[in-house]
Amino acid sequence: MIKENLAEVEKRIQAACDRAGRKREEVTLIAVSKTKPVSMIEEAMDAGIIEFGENKVQELSEKYDILPENLNWHLIGHLQRNKVKYIVDKVKMIHSVDSLRLAETISQEALKKNVVVSVLIEVNVAEEDTKYGVKCEEVENLIEQIAKLENVKIKGLMTIAPFVENPEQNRQYFRKLKQLSVDIKTKNKDNVSMSELSMGMTGDYEVAVEEGATMIRVGTGIFGGRNYNIV
Rank of each mutant, 00 (worst) to 15 (best):
V115Y: 06
K178A: 15
K135S: 12
E8A: 15
E43A: 05
K23I: 03
V27G: 07
Y132E: 04
D129F: 02
S118I: 05
K85H: 09
V88Q: 04
I216K: 07
I216A: 03
R171P: 02
N170W: 05
A126D: 06
L111T: 14
Y228V: 11
H78N: 03
M199T: 03
L120Y: 01
E137F: 00
A47I: 00
N114Y: 12
P68Y: 04
R81S: 14
S61D: 07
Q80N: 11
Q14D: 14
D204W: 01
E109G: 06
I13Y: 14
I49P: 05
V134L: 00
E127K: 13
I49N: 13
N229V: 09
K112Q: 13
P162Q: 05
G53C: 02
N55W: 01
T214R: 11
N141R: 15
S118W: 06
A16G: 13
L102R: 01
R81V: 09
G48N: 12
N188M: 09
K131S: 06
E69C: 10
N141S: 15
L120V: 00
P68I: 03
A15W: 12
V115L: 11
I106C: 03
V125P: 05
H78K: 07
E42I: 00
E42L: 00
T220M: 08
W73G: 00
N82A: 04
G221N: 07
E211H: 10
N55H: 04
E26A: 14
D183A: 12
I76H: 10
E137Y: 00
L197K: 05
S181A: 07
T159F: 04
I222F: 02
M158H: 08
Y132D: 04
N188Q: 12
T105S: 07
I154T: 01
G212F: 07
V9P: 08
